[in-house]
Amino acid sequence: MAGPGFFGRHSNVYTYVPNLIGYARVAAALYAFGVAFKSPYQCIIAYFLSFVCDELDGRFARMLNQTSTLGAVLDMVTDRLATTGLLIIVSLVYPQIHTLCIALVFLDIFSHWFQMYASLALGATTHKDVRSKSGLVRLYYSNRVFMGYCCICCEVLYLVIYASMWPGVMGIALPLPNGVRLELPARVLEVAPVLERFLVPSGVSIMTILGIAALPGFFTKQICNWVQLRTAADQLIAVDAQKKK
């Protein structure tokens, strides 16, 4: 059990260890976005550290008994802003998919804010205290492995798309046997020439492998977001209907 003092529950919530980690997370994300078009390695490493902080803040909050409403809001808002920032970078790298990036931002923010307000309206203290009718949403918030898988896959996919503008990063590859080359059909390249960035003539790009592996989790996360948005909206309507009785 955590003792009194800095590593226990004290009066200055701003200096709670998990909140300090949250501030560091914001700083790391801002740094990542600041160097995104100068140093891809620094960007990816800084964003990865920010993502690691997202896991650490919750662990320290529970371990040190330093949970707080400030920390919960800081965590959620940083989640949304970090993902939004990364999607902005992706939309700048590939302007042709900027509408898709905006749609993903809309879905992410809408679903989580609707979920938060629905949870509060039902008497919960956090959006993760789920009283949703959807089994998928309850699974998402109650199973940390499932939630982590979905979130990590989204971030990895966005980072891979960002990294594809840097041949040096994409060139980190697993070698192929002599004489073997990976090539896409000419017709595919005519329709989507950008896919050539994900290929390495002499091997299989590790970033491409990560991107392909992340696709199932990415799609699962978007389904969760949509279901969460719909069920949260239903809950808000039900709350209003209950008040009128």
Rank of each mutant, 00 (worst) to 15 (best):
V17F: 12
Y162L: 06
D57F: 05
R62S: 08
L56H: 07
T126H: 13
C150N: 11
I161C: 08
A173K: 11
F218L: 14
L174M: 13
V191T: 15
K245C: 09
A214F: 01
L139T: 09
A27M: 11
D129K: 12
H10K: 08
L229K: 01
I109N: 01
L20S: 02
L74C: 10
I212W: 09
N12R: 12
L49F: 12
V160G: 00
G217V: 01
S142V: 04
I161L: 14
Q115F: 01
L176P: 06
A27L: 14
K128I: 11
R62G: 09
H112S: 09
C153M: 10
C154S: 06
L86Q: 02
S119T: 10
L195M: 13
D79V: 02
L70G: 03
G211D: 00
E55C: 11
M1Q: 13
G148Q: 07
C153R: 00
A192V: 15
P177R: 08
W166D: 13
A238M: 06
Q115Y: 03
V17L: 13
K245L: 14
L189T: 13
D54P: 04
A27Y: 03
L49C: 13
A24E: 02
C101W: 00
M165D: 08
A238L: 11
D79P: 02
I89N: 00
P4H: 11
A118S: 14
Q235I: 05
L100N: 03
P185Y: 10
A186D: 14
V227L: 09
R131T: 11
I45H: 03
K133T: 10
Y16K: 07
L49E: 05
Y141R: 05
A173I: 06
I237W: 09
P201T: 04
L174W: 12
I45L: 15
A72Y: 05
L120C: 08
A27H: 04
V191C: 08
T15V: 14
G22I: 00
S50I: 00
